[in-house]
Computed example of a mutant assay.
Amino acid sequence: MLNRFMQMRLRDLIILAVILFALPLFLNNPFHYDLATQMAIIAATVVGLNLLVGFAGQISLGHAGFFGLGAYFTGIMTSNYGWSSVPALVVGAILVGIVAWIVGRPILRLKGHYLSMATLAVGFIIAIILNNERALTGGPDGMPVPAFTVFGWELSPFGSYNLLGMELNGSEAWYLFAAVVLLVAVWLAQNLIDSPIGRALRSVHGSEVAARVVGVDTARYKSLVFVVSAIYASAMGSLYAHFQGFITPAVAGFDFSILFITMVVLGGMGSTMGVILGAVVLKLLPQVLADFQELETVMFGAILMLTMIFMPKGLLPTIQTAVGKRMKKKAGGQA
Protein backbone atom coordinates (compact mmCIF):
# COMPACT_ATOMS: atom_id res chain seq x y z
CA MET A 1 0.00 0.00 0.00
CA LEU A 2 2.79 2.41 0.91
CA ASN A 3 4.59 1.72 -2.36
CA ARG A 4 1.41 2.50 -4.27
CA PHE A 5 1.06 5.83 -2.49
CA MET A 6 4.72 6.64 -3.14
CA GLN A 7 4.24 5.87 -6.82
CA MET A 8 1.24 8.19 -6.92
CA ARG A 9 3.25 10.98 -5.28
CA LEU A 10 6.07 10.50 -7.79
CA ARG A 11 3.59 10.54 -10.65
CA ASP A 12 2.05 13.78 -9.37
CA LEU A 13 5.50 15.36 -9.02
CA ILE A 14 6.44 14.39 -12.59
CA ILE A 15 3.15 15.74 -13.95
CA LEU A 16 3.69 19.01 -12.07
CA ALA A 17 7.25 19.29 -13.42
CA VAL A 18 6.05 18.74 -16.99
CA ILE A 19 3.35 21.40 -16.59
CA LEU A 20 5.73 23.93 -15.02
CA PHE A 21 8.44 23.56 -17.66
CA ALA A 22 5.97 23.42 -20.55
CA LEU A 23 4.09 26.51 -19.36
CA PRO A 24 6.58 29.01 -20.88
CA LEU A 25 5.37 27.86 -24.32
CA PHE A 26 2.09 29.65 -23.53
CA LEU A 27 3.48 32.75 -21.79
CA ASN A 28 3.73 35.63 -24.21
CA ASN A 29 5.09 38.61 -22.27
CA PRO A 30 6.78 39.64 -18.99
CA PHE A 31 3.41 40.22 -17.31
CA HIS A 32 2.44 36.58 -17.88
CA TYR A 33 5.78 35.41 -16.51
CA ASP A 34 5.46 37.67 -13.47
CA LEU A 35 1.96 36.35 -12.76
CA ALA A 36 3.16 32.75 -13.13
CA THR A 37 6.08 33.45 -10.78
CA GLN A 38 3.73 34.85 -8.14
CA MET A 39 1.55 31.74 -8.54
CA ALA A 40 4.53 29.44 -7.98
CA ILE A 41 5.71 31.29 -4.86
CA ILE A 42 2.25 31.48 -3.32
CA ALA A 43 1.51 27.86 -4.29
CA ALA A 44 4.63 26.78 -2.38
CA THR A 45 3.36 28.77 0.62
CA VAL A 46 -0.01 27.02 0.66
CA VAL A 47 1.65 23.62 0.18
CA GLY A 48 3.19 24.24 3.61
CA LEU A 49 -0.09 25.55 5.04
CA ASN A 50 -1.85 22.44 3.76
CA LEU A 51 0.37 20.29 5.98
CA LEU A 52 -1.13 22.12 8.97
CA VAL A 53 -4.73 22.48 7.78
CA GLY A 54 -5.27 19.59 5.40
CA PHE A 55 -3.27 16.86 7.12
CA ALA A 56 -3.16 17.85 10.80
CA GLY A 57 -6.61 19.46 10.82
CA GLN A 58 -5.44 22.65 12.58
CA ILE A 59 -6.77 25.97 11.29
CA SER A 60 -4.61 29.08 10.85
CA LEU A 61 -6.09 32.44 9.92
CA GLY A 62 -2.92 34.44 10.53
CA HIS A 63 -0.39 32.60 8.41
CA ALA A 64 0.44 35.70 6.38
CA GLY A 65 2.12 36.98 9.54
CA PHE A 66 4.90 34.41 9.10
CA PHE A 67 5.03 35.20 5.37
CA GLY A 68 5.47 38.87 6.22
CA LEU A 69 8.11 38.20 8.88
CA GLY A 70 10.21 36.28 6.37
CA ALA A 71 9.79 39.02 3.78
CA TYR A 72 10.76 41.81 6.17
CA PHE A 73 13.67 39.95 7.79
CA THR A 74 15.20 39.37 4.37
CA GLY A 75 14.46 42.92 3.27
CA ILE A 76 15.99 44.47 6.38
CA MET A 77 19.11 42.29 6.47
CA THR A 78 19.90 42.63 2.76
CA SER A 79 19.05 46.34 2.50
CA ASN A 80 20.44 47.65 5.77
CA TYR A 81 23.13 45.19 6.80
CA GLY A 82 24.54 43.93 3.51
CA TRP A 83 23.61 40.27 3.98
CA SER A 84 23.41 37.98 0.99
CA SER A 85 19.91 36.74 0.14
CA VAL A 86 20.34 33.03 0.94
CA PRO A 87 21.72 33.50 4.50
CA ALA A 88 18.99 36.05 5.17
CA LEU A 89 16.33 33.63 3.91
CA VAL A 90 17.69 30.70 5.94
CA VAL A 91 18.22 32.64 9.18
CA GLY A 92 14.83 34.31 8.78
CA ALA A 93 13.13 30.92 8.34
CA ILE A 94 14.87 29.56 11.45
CA LEU A 95 13.86 32.57 13.54
CA VAL A 96 10.28 32.45 12.27
CA GLY A 97 10.22 28.72 13.09
CA ILE A 98 11.29 29.56 16.66
CA VAL A 99 8.57 32.22 16.91
CA ALA A 100 6.02 29.72 15.58
CA TRP A 101 7.10 27.15 18.16
CA ILE A 102 6.82 29.69 21.01
CA VAL A 103 3.34 30.90 20.03
CA GLY A 104 2.18 27.51 18.78
CA ARG A 105 2.65 25.59 22.03
CA PRO A 106 -0.10 27.46 23.90
CA ILE A 107 -2.52 28.28 21.07
CA LEU A 108 -2.57 24.76 19.59
CA ARG A 109 -4.15 23.55 22.83
CA LEU A 110 -7.25 25.38 21.64
CA LYS A 111 -9.77 23.91 19.21
CA GLY A 112 -12.35 25.09 16.72
CA HIS A 113 -13.32 28.76 16.79
CA TYR A 114 -10.95 29.47 19.67
CA LEU A 115 -7.96 28.25 17.66
CA SER A 116 -9.11 30.29 14.66
CA MET A 117 -9.33 33.46 16.72
CA ALA A 118 -5.94 32.83 18.37
CA THR A 119 -4.13 32.38 15.04
CA LEU A 120 -5.96 35.42 13.68
CA ALA A 121 -4.70 37.44 16.65
CA VAL A 122 -1.11 36.30 15.98
CA GLY A 123 -1.40 37.57 12.41
CA PHE A 124 -2.83 40.90 13.54
CA ILE A 125 -0.06 41.39 16.12
CA ILE A 126 2.66 40.78 13.53
CA ALA A 127 1.02 43.16 11.05
CA ILE A 128 0.71 45.87 13.73
CA ILE A 129 4.38 45.50 14.67
CA LEU A 130 5.47 45.80 11.03
CA ASN A 131 3.28 48.91 10.66
CA ASN A 132 4.60 50.62 13.77
CA GLU A 133 8.33 49.88 13.59
CA ARG A 134 9.00 52.63 11.07
CA ALA A 135 12.75 52.77 11.72
CA LEU A 136 13.18 49.17 10.57
CA THR A 137 10.27 48.48 8.24
CA GLY A 138 9.37 51.88 6.82
CA GLY A 139 5.95 51.61 8.42
CA PRO A 140 2.87 51.68 6.19
CA ASP A 141 4.96 53.11 3.33
CA GLY A 142 6.97 49.90 3.10
CA MET A 143 10.59 49.41 2.08
CA PRO A 144 12.59 48.48 -1.04
CA VAL A 145 14.24 45.08 -1.27
CA PRO A 146 17.34 44.44 -3.42
CA ALA A 147 17.56 41.72 -6.08
CA PHE A 148 18.04 38.12 -5.05
CA THR A 149 21.74 37.21 -4.92
CA VAL A 150 23.53 33.91 -4.41
CA PHE A 151 27.33 33.46 -4.60
CA GLY A 152 27.61 36.90 -6.16
CA TRP A 153 25.08 36.05 -8.90
CA GLU A 154 22.14 38.45 -9.04
CA LEU A 155 18.63 37.48 -10.13
CA SER A 156 16.68 40.55 -11.17
CA PRO A 157 13.43 40.93 -13.16
CA PHE A 158 15.32 43.45 -15.30
CA GLY A 159 18.41 41.34 -15.98
CA SER A 160 19.49 39.12 -18.88
CA TYR A 161 20.80 35.59 -18.40
CA ASN A 162 22.28 32.68 -20.35
CA LEU A 163 21.11 29.25 -19.22
CA LEU A 164 22.43 26.22 -21.12
CA GLY A 165 22.77 28.30 -24.25
CA MET A 166 19.31 29.87 -23.90
CA GLU A 167 19.01 33.64 -23.57
CA LEU A 168 16.51 34.51 -20.83
CA ASN A 169 15.25 37.85 -19.62
CA GLY A 170 14.76 38.53 -15.92
CA SER A 171 11.08 37.54 -15.85
CA GLU A 172 11.79 34.20 -17.55
CA ALA A 173 14.71 33.45 -15.21
CA TRP A 174 12.64 34.29 -12.13
CA TYR A 175 9.84 31.99 -13.33
CA LEU A 176 12.18 29.04 -13.83
CA PHE A 177 13.71 29.64 -10.41
CA ALA A 178 10.27 29.81 -8.77
CA ALA A 179 9.19 26.65 -10.62
CA VAL A 180 12.18 24.73 -9.22
CA VAL A 181 11.44 26.08 -5.72
CA LEU A 182 7.83 24.90 -6.01
CA LEU A 183 8.94 21.42 -7.07
CA VAL A 184 11.33 21.22 -4.12
CA ALA A 185 8.58 22.43 -1.75
CA VAL A 186 6.18 19.76 -3.05
CA TRP A 187 8.85 17.03 -2.86
CA LEU A 188 9.65 17.91 0.76
CA ALA A 189 5.95 17.99 1.66
CA GLN A 190 5.34 14.61 0.01
CA ASN A 191 8.24 13.05 1.90
CA LEU A 192 6.87 14.40 5.16
CA ILE A 193 3.38 13.10 4.34
CA ASP A 194 4.70 9.60 3.58
CA SER A 195 6.85 9.48 6.74
CA PRO A 196 5.79 8.31 10.23
CA ILE A 197 5.31 12.00 11.07
CA GLY A 198 2.76 12.29 8.25
CA ARG A 199 0.88 9.25 9.51
CA ALA A 200 0.84 10.74 13.01
CA LEU A 201 -0.55 14.01 11.62
CA ARG A 202 -3.34 12.18 9.81
CA SER A 203 -4.21 10.35 13.01
CA VAL A 204 -4.44 13.70 14.82
CA HIS A 205 -6.75 14.96 12.10
CA GLY A 206 -8.94 11.87 12.25
CA SER A 207 -9.36 11.80 16.04
CA GLU A 208 -7.03 13.51 18.47
CA VAL A 209 -8.38 11.47 21.39
CA ALA A 210 -7.85 8.18 19.54
CA ALA A 211 -4.35 9.28 18.50
CA ARG A 212 -3.42 9.96 22.15
CA VAL A 213 -4.83 6.57 23.17
CA VAL A 214 -2.49 4.73 20.77
CA GLY A 215 0.51 6.71 22.02
CA VAL A 216 0.79 9.65 19.60
CA ASP A 217 2.19 12.77 21.26
CA THR A 218 -0.42 15.04 19.69
CA ALA A 219 0.90 18.28 21.21
CA ARG A 220 4.39 17.60 19.86
CA TYR A 221 3.22 16.77 16.35
CA LYS A 222 0.86 19.73 16.16
CA SER A 223 3.67 22.06 17.22
CA LEU A 224 6.02 20.45 14.72
CA VAL A 225 3.71 20.88 11.73
CA PHE A 226 2.89 24.43 12.82
CA VAL A 227 6.61 25.23 12.79
CA VAL A 228 7.14 23.52 9.41
CA SER A 229 4.26 25.42 7.80
CA ALA A 230 5.60 28.70 9.25
CA ILE A 231 9.06 27.96 7.82
CA TYR A 232 7.49 27.38 4.40
CA ALA A 233 5.69 30.72 4.69
CA SER A 234 8.81 32.58 5.84
CA ALA A 235 11.02 31.21 3.06
CA MET A 236 8.43 32.01 0.39
CA GLY A 237 7.89 35.47 1.91
CA SER A 238 11.62 36.12 1.48
CA LEU A 239 11.52 35.10 -2.18
CA TYR A 240 8.36 37.15 -2.72
CA ALA A 241 10.09 40.23 -1.27
CA HIS A 242 13.07 39.86 -3.60
CA PHE A 243 10.84 39.25 -6.59
CA GLN A 244 8.58 42.23 -5.93
CA GLY A 245 11.48 44.50 -5.04
CA PHE A 246 9.27 46.40 -2.59
CA ILE A 247 7.13 45.27 0.34
CA THR A 248 4.55 46.82 2.65
CA PRO A 249 2.91 45.45 5.83
CA ALA A 250 0.06 44.26 3.59
CA VAL A 251 2.06 41.06 2.96
CA ALA A 252 1.41 40.14 6.60
CA GLY A 253 -2.19 41.36 6.59
CA PHE A 254 -5.56 39.70 7.04
CA ASP A 255 -6.31 39.68 3.30
CA PHE A 256 -3.24 37.56 2.54
CA SER A 257 -4.07 35.14 5.37
CA ILE A 258 -7.61 34.66 4.08
CA LEU A 259 -6.28 34.24 0.54
CA PHE A 260 -3.93 31.46 1.69
CA ILE A 261 -6.56 29.53 3.64
CA THR A 262 -9.11 29.93 0.83
CA MET A 263 -6.64 28.46 -1.66
CA VAL A 264 -6.26 25.40 0.56
CA VAL A 265 -10.01 24.93 1.01
CA LEU A 266 -10.86 25.65 -2.63
CA GLY A 267 -8.20 23.36 -4.09
CA GLY A 268 -8.85 20.52 -1.67
CA MET A 269 -7.62 20.12 1.91
CA GLY A 270 -5.20 17.24 2.21
CA SER A 271 -4.39 17.32 -1.52
CA THR A 272 -0.98 18.78 -2.32
CA MET A 273 -1.75 19.11 -6.01
CA GLY A 274 -5.21 20.41 -5.15
CA VAL A 275 -3.94 23.38 -3.16
CA ILE A 276 -1.61 24.27 -6.03
CA LEU A 277 -4.66 24.29 -8.30
CA GLY A 278 -6.45 26.47 -5.74
CA ALA A 279 -3.56 28.94 -5.79
CA VAL A 280 -3.62 29.10 -9.58
CA VAL A 281 -7.38 29.60 -9.74
CA LEU A 282 -7.47 32.34 -7.12
CA LYS A 283 -4.58 34.21 -8.76
CA LEU A 284 -6.15 33.94 -12.20
CA LEU A 285 -9.74 34.80 -11.30
CA PRO A 286 -9.09 38.52 -10.64
CA GLN A 287 -7.39 38.75 -14.05
CA VAL A 288 -10.30 37.00 -15.78
CA LEU A 289 -12.90 39.14 -13.98
CA ALA A 290 -11.05 42.44 -14.39
CA ASP A 291 -13.30 43.48 -17.30
CA PHE A 292 -16.37 43.38 -15.05
CA GLN A 293 -15.06 46.34 -13.00
CA GLU A 294 -17.42 46.98 -10.05
CA LEU A 295 -18.98 43.50 -10.38
CA GLU A 296 -15.59 41.80 -10.04
CA THR A 297 -15.76 41.31 -6.27
CA VAL A 298 -19.38 40.09 -6.40
CA MET A 299 -18.63 37.56 -9.15
CA PHE A 300 -15.46 36.44 -7.37
CA GLY A 301 -17.44 35.72 -4.20
CA ALA A 302 -20.24 34.00 -6.13
CA ILE A 303 -17.80 31.69 -7.89
CA LEU A 304 -16.17 30.72 -4.60
CA MET A 305 -19.56 30.18 -2.94
CA LEU A 306 -20.86 27.96 -5.75
CA THR A 307 -17.64 25.98 -5.78
CA MET A 308 -17.90 25.31 -2.05
CA ILE A 309 -21.57 24.32 -2.36
CA PHE A 310 -21.17 21.91 -5.27
CA MET A 311 -17.55 20.86 -4.66
CA PRO A 312 -17.23 20.79 -0.85
CA LYS A 313 -14.14 18.55 -0.96
CA GLY A 314 -12.32 21.01 -3.20
CA LEU A 315 -11.70 21.29 -6.91
CA LEU A 316 -9.14 18.57 -7.53
CA PRO A 317 -10.56 15.82 -5.26
CA THR A 318 -14.01 16.37 -6.81
CA ILE A 319 -12.60 16.19 -10.35
CA GLN A 320 -10.60 13.07 -9.50
CA THR A 321 -13.66 11.39 -7.98
CA ALA A 322 -15.79 12.21 -11.04
CA VAL A 323 -13.14 10.91 -13.44
CA GLY A 324 -12.68 7.77 -11.36
CA LYS A 325 -16.42 7.04 -11.37
CA ARG A 326 -16.62 7.55 -15.13
CA MET A 327 -13.68 5.22 -15.75
CA LYS A 328 -15.22 2.55 -13.53
CA LYS A 329 -18.54 2.93 -15.33
CA LYS A 330 -16.86 2.50 -18.71
CA ALA A 331 -14.89 -0.50 -17.46
CA GLY A 332 -18.11 -2.06 -16.13
CA GLY A 333 -19.88 -1.46 -19.43
CA GLN A 334 -17.09 -3.08 -21.42
CA ALA A 335 -17.08 -6.09 -19.08
Rank of each mutant, 00 (worst) to 15 (best):
G70I: 06
F26V: 15
L52F: 03
Q38L: 15
M39A: 07
Y33L: 15
V86S: 01
A71I: 00
W83R: 03
V47K: 00
A40G: 10
I41E: 02
G62A: 09
A44P: 01
I41V: 12
I76C: 06
F66L: 08
V53G: 03
T45A: 13
L35N: 06
H63K: 11
T78A: 08
G48C: 04
T78G: 03
G75R: 00
L61H: 06
S85R: 01
G54S: 07
G68Y: 06
D34Q: 12
A36V: 06
Y33F: 15
V46A: 01
I59S: 13
I76A: 05
I76F: 08
Y81V: 00
F73T: 10
N28M: 12
I41M: 13
D34G: 11
I76Q: 05
N28T: 12
A43Y: 04
F31D: 09
F67M: 15
M77I: 07
N28H: 14
D34H: 12
H63P: 09
L49A: 10
I42T: 13
A71R: 00
F55D: 01
A40V: 07
I59T: 13
T37G: 05
V53L: 14
G70E: 03
G68W: 02
S79R: 11
G65W: 07
T37I: 11
F66H: 05
L69H: 11
Y72F: 11
V47P: 02
A43R: 00
F31Y: 14
P30K: 08
T78C: 04
I42P: 01
L49G: 09
A36G: 06
V47E: 03
S60D: 14
I41C: 04
L69G: 08
S85Y: 02
A40S: 12
A56T: 09
A36Y: 10
D34R: 12
G82I: 04
N29D: 15
S84D: 15
N50S: 01
A64C: 12
S60K: 10
V46F: 00
N50G: 02
T45W: 00
S79L: 13
H63C: 14
F67T: 05
Q38C: 11
H63V: 08
G57D: 05
A44C: 04
V53Q: 02
G68I: 00
A71M: 09
D34L: 13
I42K: 12
H32L: 07
G54N: 05
S84F: 06
A40Y: 10
S84P: 02
Y81D: 02
L35G: 05
P30I: 15
A71G: 13
F31A: 10
G82L: 06
G57R: 08
F66A: 03
T74W: 03
F26A: 15
T78R: 02
V47I: 08
T74M: 13
D34I: 10
S84R: 06
S79C: 08
M77C: 09
N29T: 09
F66K: 04
L35P: 00
I76R: 05
F66Q: 03
Q58K: 12
V47G: 01
Q38Y: 14
L61F: 14
N80I: 09
F31V: 11
T74I: 08
N28W: 15
F55L: 14
G70H: 05
F73R: 10
